[in-house]
Structure formats: structure tokens, C-alpha cells
Design a protein around this nucleic acid. Structure first.
Lengths: 117, 117
DNA sequence: TCTTGACCTTGAGTTACTCGAGGCAGGTAA
DNA sequence: TTACCTGCCTCGAGTAACTCAAGGTCAAGA
């Protein structure tokens, strides 16, 4: 499929997809005879994963490592698993941060309320 | 107190505090006779709030609006409340994103597991 | 044939820090 | 007293991760 479709399916913007490809984050993107990118379902699946990893705060360097492993084939699955498990721990931390921020907002909002009484 | 203490209490780095002050995000920072910044407890409370707002994804432009309102005094409390409530809705969205990412990671990890059996 | 729309590359601009260079001020050690 | 060390200061450059604008190609439709 074309880049616009890959973008709307994955959640990434067209520019971001091109940028990620240039940075080596998206292996094996084919080109048509007209020089335009053609994305396979596997490509889109990968882009979607990148979208969610970025959305939840994975740094590009880590994504680059992850992509390099992915490009090397199935024998790197244990390493990739490790990266995803690490990220999963980061998600837990972020959830905790959200809770903390909620508390702080609630406290502030309460003070703001009290100001009007 | 001095900037290093304000940094360790608020969570922000020293450089970030200076940068935020330069951008107008931190009103009323006093200076000692030696030209060094002196932070009040109110300052540190404010910095801590900024830390958590940033940590949970509030863009600087919004923080700038928020700081401008804060600098204008108590009559802007309703507007500030509105900003915090908006942010609170953003937190809910982020929590939802974390859940979504968790799902996707779980699915990937399952596939990785299956690969070894 | 002309135009429209989706794609291409390259390079510059933006956001939000982050770091390094060079300098002052105050306290301690020789 | 002198030397040095630490913590602060400013200013300007560098970085990360996009994001956008300029200018160009190509296929399909009016």
C-alpha cells in the first residue's frame, strides 16, 4: 500500500514515516517502478508498534536498536523481548507518574475551589 | 533557598529551572545581593507543579499561558482551573494510551514466546 | 493538453531542553 | 595573604525528534 494509507493505519504522520525510514527504523520498505514506497502488512504492523512505543515514551535510540535487531531476523527475538519487557516496566512507571500528577492536580483544584468560598 | 535545592525538591534540573525562568514560566524569583537566585517555598511549589505538568506531557505554550495567568494574581484562578481540568482530561487519555500499548506489547511478547515452542 | 493530486528529495525551522566556555564571589587550606 | 575550590552566573552553541516548505516527477482524469 501507499504511504498515506500506511500513515492512517499506523497512526504515524507521513513525514514521520519517511524520517523513521531514513533513520533506519523501518527495514525492507519496497519501492514501485515509479520510485514510490510500497508498504507491506508487515511494514504497517511494525510502524504501528513504533507508533505506540514512541507514544509511550521510548527514546529513538532504543527504537533504533530494536529496529536493528528486527532487521537481523528471528534469532534476535530474545533480545527484542528484553527491550519490550523493559518498556513494559517503563509503562508501569508512567502510570504511576500519572497517578502522582492526578493527586497534585486534585490538591491544586481543591485549593482553587476553596478560594471561592 | 538556592537553585540546587530548588532543583532537588522540585525534580527539575538546574538548567531547566533557569531556562523556564528565562521563558517566563517562573514569576517572582528573587535575587540575593550576590546576584544569585533565591527561591521561596511558593516558587518551589510552583516548580514542582511545572515538573509534573511537563512530565505528563503539557506543552510549553500551555505552561506559558498558565504561568502568565498565575503572575496576574488570584482573579485568574477560574482560567487556571480550566487549564488544569483540561490537563486532567489529557491524563485520562494518556492512561488509555498506556493500556493500549500494554495490550500491543502483550500480543507481541506472546508471539515471541510462541516462536520458541 | 492541461491540470490535479499524491508522491519524491533536500534542506531549513521548531521545540524543549542541554551543555560548554568563561567569569565572579565566598569560604577554606597552606 | 595567596591559592584554590565550589556553586553560582550569562551567553551561545548543540541535540533530539520531528515538521514544514520548495521544487520536482509521474499517472490519471476533464
Amino acid at each position: 500500500m501507499r504511504i498515506s494509507e500506511a500513515a492512517s493505519l499506523s497512526g504515524l504522520k507521513i513525514d514521520t514515516i519517511r524520517y523513521y525510514e531514513a533513520e533506519g527504523l523501518v527495514p525492507n520498505v519496497a519501492r514501485g517502478s515509479d520510485g514510490q514506497r510500497r508498504f507491506s502488512f508487515e511494514n504497517v504492523d511494525w510502524l504501528t508498534l513504533l507508533f505506540w512505543l514512541r507514544e509511550t515514551g521510548m527514546p529513538m535510540k532504543v527504537m533504533q536498536q530494536f529496529a536493528a535487531l528486527y532487521a537481523q531476523g528471528d534469532e534476535t527475538i530474545p533480545d527484542r523481548k528484553e527491550i519490550l519487557l523493559d518498556h513494559s516496566r517503563l509503562l508501569a512507571k508512567r502510570r504511576h507518574d500519572l497517578d502522582r500528577c492526578d493527586e497534585i492536580l486534585a490538591r491544586k483544584l481543591k485549593i482553587y475551589e476553596e478560594y471561592f468560598s
